[in-house]
Design a protein around this nucleic acid. Structure first.
Lengths: 105, 105
DNA sequence: CGTGTAAGGAATTCTGACACG
DNA sequence: CGTGTAAGGAATTCTGACACG
């Protein structure tokens, strides 16, 4: 009623369910967090909480990794999606990555 | 991507988070399940999993109870919402309940 | 680099029961 | 009737480390 489509952003999914939803292992998910690819919330006692958007993002990350893209490149990719206005500034270094993504896709 | 707006129906929220989202106690939520007002999934090991729809439903249930409506009447109300085509068949007995709901609202 | 695993501890959830009313 | 609580056990998650490569 009050919260319309923000369900995708509510961080309420624990890591075990994220595993089921994505097919990834707990180890993988924690590692992607360590590499700054994903940013779960934490309960006051330290338990990770993910959103459905996080789950979708994790699937994309896994796809990129399966394509041979490493975590550093994926981080660049994600940052670019977040700040499309910076596209021009980082054009040169990102040009190579884009080319790579187009090749493997 | 594949799952569009079905996020509201995915049963992935554990009871502790449902408490936070609704303000209800664990005891209350379990009791409403016992009274057949809410139907969480269960993990293979017995842990309850709720959806965002369940969370919304729980808030409505709590509001009804705060209005003095008992769980049996709430169950009738919920059943009516589920099967609106049966409205005419149960018209007589439900008429009283509807009247009651209108009074307290 | 990305992922598996065993280790030990902490946090979460479960059920059935007693209590009050 | 609806809800609180203490009890004991089971399931979940956490971190840091070692391993392989």
């Amino acid at each position: 009623m009050e919260t319309k489509d923000s369900y995708k952003d509510r961080k309420v999914i624990k890591i075990g369910d994220v595993c089921e939803l994505t097919g990834l292992s707990v180890r993988q998910i924690r590692y992607y967090e360590e590499r700054k690819l994903i940013f779960p919330d934490r309960s006051s006692t330290g338990i990770r909480k993910f959103s459905f958007n996080d789950v979708e993002k994790l699937v994309e990350i896994a796809n990129h990794l399966a394509d041979g893209v490493n975590t550093h490149e994926i981080r660049q990719e994600l940052r670019r999606k977040q700040n499309p206005q910076q596209e021009k500034r980082n054009e040169m270094i990102e040009g190579q990555i884009n080319a790579h993504f187009k090749l493997v896709k």
